[in-house]
Design a binder for these strands. Structure first.
Length: 422
DNA sequence: TCTGGGGTCCTAGGACCC
DNA sequence: TCTGGGGTCCTAGGACCC
C-alpha cells in the first residue's frame, strides 16, 4: 500500500504561512522574473485564471487597485517548508520517498493498514498544525493509483481518500489524459485507439499500448491494474546533470555582458554540483535570441538558440576551470548586437569525486574536489550567497538580473527576515 | 514593451568493435 | 548463381514530470 501526500497549491500555502492576511484571498505565486502564474489559490482559480497566465495581463487587477494578490517565487522558503513536511512524515510513516518539492510517497506502518482513512487524517492534521500547510492524502496499491486517490482526497472536506479495490467507476469517470504519465501529446493518439478514460487505458491490450506510447505507457497501464512498475526515485539523489538558466530582467545586447551572465550561471550550477560532491566532464552553454512574436507563434523556438558544447580538460568541480574553458570555446558564437532574452549552462558527464574510474594511460588526472571552492562555498554559506565570487561574473550590478519585486521574507531560514507579529 | 526553471527516461539510428 | 552475426556506445529528439 502506497500513500501520496502533497501540499495544496503549495507555493501559495507557504506564502500564507508567513503572511496570514493572504488567507481567503485570490493569490498567485509568479515564476522567476515575475513572468507568469505558477501556483494559484482556490480563490484565484475560481476566477477562471489559468495556470501560466502572464503577469502583465493581470497587473491592472493587482491589489490595492484590484482584488488579486501576487508574490514572487521564494524558493528558499518553499524548500524549507518542504523539508519540515518530510520531517513530519518520517515520524509517522514506515518509509518516505520525496518525489518533488511538494509531494512525497509514503509506506504506512503495518498497524495502520486497517485504518488508512483515519491514519491519513492524522497525517493531514499534524502537518496543518505543525507546519501550517494543508495537504491532500491518497492511498492505493500503486503510485499511479495513489495519485488519483490523492486528487479525489484533495476535493473532499476530510482531504483523504483510500482507493477501493473495485475502482471501475472511478477510473471510468477519469479522462485518460489526466492519468499520471500521460502528457499532452498522448491523448490524441489514444483517442484514435478508442482509449478515452483511465479504465480504457487500464484494459487496453498490451501491444496497442506499446505501439502508442512505448514501454512507458504500458507501465502506466500496469500500474492502473495494480502492478507496481514505478521505481522509487529519490528527489535528493545524485543527478545525471545539473543546470542553471535564467530569463534576463532586461535584454542583453553585447557579448561581454552575456559572458558575465554565463559565468554567473556556471558558478551557480557548480555550487549545486559540489553540494553533491560530484565532478563534471563538460557543459552545454546556450543563449536564446529575443525574437519578436516568439510566443504568438507558439512552440516554434527553432533557430532562436545559439549554443555549444564544451569539454573540460578533465572532470572538475572548480568554477574557474569551467569558466575559462567556456570563455575559450564560445569565441564568436554569440553575435554582438543581437538581443538575448535568456541564457543557460548545463553541466553533464557527472561522476562522484574520488570515485573509481577509467584512467587515461597518457595523462595523470586528479579527479578530486577543489579545496579552494570548498572554502568559498563555506564562506558563502556563512556570510550569505555571493559574498565571494569570481570577477568574470562582472563587478557592476547586473542589468540582466531577474525581476523579483514581490518577494516575501525568507522567514524560516534567515534571522533578519523573521515575521513581524505587530 | 511584458510569458519559468530543472529534471528524468525511452527510442531510433549511426558509428564502431571483433 | 554467391557477400555474417552479434554486440556496445553515443547522440538527438521526443515525451513526460513537478
Amino acid at each position: 500500500m502506497i500513500g501520496l501526500v502533497d501540499g495544496n497549491n503549495f507555493f501559495v500555502s507557504c506564502e500564507r504561512v508567513v503572511d496570514p492576511k493572504l488567507n481567503g484571498k485570490p493569490v498567485a505565486v509568479l515564476s522567476n522574473n515575475d513572468g507568469c502564474c505558477v501556483s494559484r489559490s482556490n480563490e484565484f482559480k475560481a476566477l477562471g485564471i489559468g495556470m501560466g497566465v502572464p503577469y502583465y495581463q493581470l497587473k491592472d487587477r493587482e491589489y490595492p487597485k484590484g482584488d488579486l494578490f501576487f508574490r514572487s517565487s521564494n524558493y528558499e522558503l518553499y524548500g524549507d517548508m518542504s523539508r519540515r513536511i518530510i520531517e513530519v512524515l518520517r515520524g509517522m510513516a514506515a518509509d518516505v520517498m520525496q518525489y518533488s518539492i511538494d509531494e512525497a510517497f509514503i509506506r504506512p506502518p503495518t498497524p495502520e493498514l486497517g485504518r488508512l482513512a483515519d491514519y491519513g487524517g492524522r497525517i493531514r492534521s499534524r502537518i496543518l498544525k505543525w507546519i501550517g500547510i494543508p495537504c491532500g492524502v491518497g492511498f492505493a496499491s500503486t503510485k499511479t493509483l495513489a495519485k488519483i486517490a490523492n486528487h479525489i482526497g484533495k476535493k473532499l472536506p476530510e482531504g483523504v481518500f483510500v482507493m477501493p479495490d473495485e475502482a471501475d467507476g472511478i477510473l471510468a469517470g477519469l479522462p485518460a489524459g489526466e492519468v499520471w504519465g500521460v502528457g499532452r501529446r498522448l491523448p490524441a493518439k489514444l483517442r484514435a485507439e478508442r482509449i478515452m478514460t483511465a479504465k480504457d487505458l487500464r484494459d487496453a491490450p498490451d501491444d496497442v499500448l506499446r505501439s502508442v506510447g512505448g514501454v512507458t505507457l504500458l507501465r502506466t497501464a500496469l500500474e492502473l491494474r495494480g502492478v507496481e512498475c514505478h521505481e522509487d526515485r529519490d528527489y535528493a539523489a545524485d543527478p545525471d546533470s545539473v543546470s542553471c538558466s535564467r530569463s534576463f530582467g532586461e535584454k542583453v545586447g553585447d557579448a561581454a555582458t552575456l559572458m558575465e551572465a554565463i559565468a554567473s550561471f556556471t558558478a551557480q550550477a557548480a555550487v549545486k554540483l559540489r553540494r553533491h560532491g560530484m565532478l563534471a566532464a563538460g557543459c552545454n552553454v546556450y543563449a536564446q535570441v529575443a525574437t519578436p512574436g516568439l510566443f504568438e507563434r507558439g512552440g516554434d523556438w527553432e533557430g532562436s538558440f545559439h549554443g555549444c558544447t564544451v569539454a573540460f580538460p578533465a572532470p572538475t568541480d572548480a568554477t574557474n576551470v569551467m569558466t575559462e574553458a567556456i570563455r575559450r570555446s564560445i569565441g564568436a558564437l554569440f553575435v554582438s548586437g543581437a538581443k538575448y532574452r535568456k541564457a543557460g549552462v548545463v553541466l553533464f558527464g557527472l561522476e562522484k569525486a574520488g570515485a573509481v574510474h577509467q584512467t587515461d594511460l597518457f595523462r595523470s588526472e586528479q579527479r578530486v574536489a577543489s579545496p579552494l571552492y570548498r572554502t568559498i562555498d563555506a564562506i558563502n554559506a556563512r556570510l550569505g550567497r555571493g559574498k565571494v565570487f569570481s570577477a568574470a561574473e562582472g563587478m557592476r550590478a547586473p542589468s540582466w538580473q531577474m525581476k523579483r519585486s514581490k518577494m516575501s521574507r525568507r522567514a524560516t531560514t534567515n534571522w533578519n527576515e523573521l515575521i513581524t507579529v505587530r
